[in-house]
Amino acid sequence: MATVFTKIINGELPGRFVYRDDKVAAFLTIEPVAYGHTLVVPIKEIDKWTDIEPELWAQCNDVAQKVGSAIIASFGSERAGYLIAGFEVPHAHIHVFPANDMSGYSLATVMKMDETDPAQMDAAAEKIRAALEAQGVDTGVETDNL
């Protein structure tokens, strides 16, 4: 059975994509620790990050690093947090988020979906896409289809 991430990637569920290629997608999480909290996910459904083949894992990390730089530029955070947990959805993913301290590393502090402002979520995705494009990254996201 397809994971929720596969359903987002396949367009069966809505997603605020900031990056996509044929192997990796990056989209905002619906329960962020801060606006801009992005998930970097292999397109291929793999449960544990330790099971991802090295070339694909390297590509996921490359995308996560670019997204992290875009998050710092977009939100003025000191750093971009990077976290792998993987218990909530059985599809490997990297959490990348604005970080000024260690609080974002506790996923117990997330804003629930009904606590987020959809306009701020949309704006966060647009800021990250624009910052990626400013880095020279082809995001692969067609914004007129969002």
Rank of each mutant, 00 (worst) to 15 (best):
D144Y: 06
T116H: 02
E115M: 10
D138L: 11
E53I: 07
L132D: 09
P118F: 04
L83Y: 08
D117S: 12
M111D: 05
D144M: 05
V141R: 01
L107P: 12
N61P: 01
T143G: 07
I128D: 00
D51N: 15
G15L: 06
G36C: 01
D51T: 06
A108Y: 01
I46K: 04
A85G: 08
I43M: 08
N61S: 09
R129T: 06
T139R: 13
E78V: 02
A2Q: 14
A26N: 13
M111G: 01
I71D: 01
V24N: 03
A25S: 15
V96Y: 05
S77W: 06
G140F: 02
N145I: 04
G104L: 04
N61Y: 02
T38E: 02
I8W: 07
H95L: 14
V89T: 15
P90Y: 14
V89D: 07
V33Q: 06
M1D: 13
Y19A: 06
A80F: 15
P90F: 13
K48Q: 11
K44G: 03
A108N: 00
Q65H: 13
D21K: 06
V40W: 00
A123G: 08
E126V: 10
I94W: 00
V40S: 03
Q59I: 00
V40I: 07
I94F: 09
